[in-house]
Design a protein around this nucleic acid. Structure first.
Lengths: 268, 268
DNA sequence: CTGCTACTGTGGTCAGACCACACGAAAGCA
DNA sequence: TGCTTTCGTGTGGTCTGACCACAGTAGCAG
């Protein structure tokens, strides 16, 4: 369809219309994706090729590719051969994590909101797993649970396994959006979670309780007892945060964020 | 490779360790953000300044900035004055939308998973709003509802208002993470939603029902009847998708996606 | 004091040049 | 013939230097 565009489309200075050059590239890739011309596993044209093909500079192409890379859409590899170049991979978790992490860092996402969202999602996941007709595969989760029983784990290691466990549950539900979101939420509050360790009085006792609660959740799922799974995971998460965070209250008061309806005091 | 030459931190070729230059920039910004040295509203150093400061080329700085921009962390503005340059803004919805949209396009996110996630989130939001102690502010939602009553709306326009309504509810809950996620989910399936319009037998009847259901949800929230709010929003959403999508079944079968536990037949 | 005009700094883009790398084909050797 | 080595080639990764358009601002003219 006539790529009109002409060579003028993206001149150096660009004015009036001005679709930022890198946007052109991004849109082009998205279109190709939507049209099915590009599927996971495929290789994108080389940067130089895309550059001439779209009539933009290579740097602009690179800016777009960088975005795609961070968003988890492509993987780049220098060199030659079938594995080289930019190939399409749909790995959302990475992008989701980056987004959450940075937004939290920039106080765009209050930690409390993240925790609350996590609560909602995990509760639903647990109930979902319990109700699943073909008993869901919890092998990964169980393996992690066993690993957590190891007595010589540092709190940080335990925490990592804990996070993996929760993520494994989300993945077991088969919902990729939730799994990716959970991964993102996790990494968004990772720093706080680690910092919260110091706040615990008795780590030994806490870890024991966490392990117990984890087993409880899995047991409820196995027993196909959705209500119990819901309750247990809910309490598990909310209790932990109640212990490790001083005050999970949302952002104090930003000059440009209306503190309007914020105190919904949801019971988590 | 005897003579590695280079030896300088970030020489052109870079080897062994090789933290990709743009990553350096990204990490730097994130660190500054975490340290509080950079807050929303602040201006980042100029590209050239950052370039020399971090010892990387301007192109690398730009690649990083582009990522930050797409992620909704900064806003760039050419020219001079206080509004020029790259200033920190924490606007997650944009990045979330881009992420979702592209992942769906690349079949990284099955549409069904998105719908299901939306269902979970919105159900929770509705219940949350109903339980909120200070009656939440539903002014925006109501205004949209009224706008939707206009008889001369094209299906597409109606759909846009509908989306805005649902988003307004999420925003009213005060949870920014959910609001942003909802915005992302929406734009991820926007194309499908529009396409689904053709599938409707009687648009007039459908829109009337949708309006009725919307009011019903808001009424339940006003009445602080969380269970009703839950049920109504759930039915509202699931019914619509059941009507507009042929087969909400996840991706057929991708060579690299195990069709494992996927049929959890969630009741939507 | 007012209004116009240069100036300056900022992002946006492009073009060209290297580098390191990884693969594959050709050349060399057994 | 078959294996090893070498060289060539194409790819991403980066840097440098150069314009352009734009938006304030300082400074000059009225």
């Amino acid at each position: 369809m006539a790529d009109d565009t002409t060579a003028l489309g993206a001149a150096p200075g660009e004015t009036s219309d001005a679709p930022r050059a890198w946007r052109t590239v991004l849109d082009h890739v998205e279109t190709q994706l939507l049209a099915g011309a590009l599927r996971p596993g495929d290789r994108l044209p080389g940067e130089r090729a895309l550059s001439t093909e779209l009539g933009v500079g290579r740097s602009s192409v690179r800016e777009a590719l960088r975005v795609l890379e961070v968003l988890g859409l492509i993987r780049t590899q220098a060199g030659s051969g079938p594995n080289a170049g930019a190939i399409i991979i749909a790995t959302p978790s990475g992008g989701m994590s980056a987004l959450m992490r940075l937004q939290v860092a920039a106080s765009g996402f209050p930690v409390a909101d993240i925790v609350r969202t996590r609560l909602i999602l995990e509760t639903a996941v647990a109930a979902d797993l319990a109700d699943a007709t073909p008993q869901p595969d919890l092998a990964t989760s169980n393996a992690l649970l066993d690993a957590m029983d190891s007595p010589d784990l540092t709190p940080a290691e335990f925490l990592a396994l804990d996070a993996a466990f929760h993520l494994a549950l989300a993945e077991a539900s088969g919902n990729q959006v939730i799994a990716a979101t959970m991964a993102g939420l996790r990494s968004g509050i990772e720093g706080y979670a680690r910092a919260g360790l110091d706040r615990l009085d008795d780590w030994h006792e806490t870890s024991a309780r966490l392990r117990r609660e984890h087993r409880g959740v899995v047991d409820a799922i196995r027993a196909a007892d959705a209500p119990a799974a819901r309750t247990r995971i809910h309490e598990h998460i909310s209790r932990y945060y109640a212990e490790t965070f001083i005050d999970p209250t949302p952002t104090p008061d930003d000059p440009d964020r209306r503190p309007a309806d914020r105190e919904h005091s949801a019971p988590w």
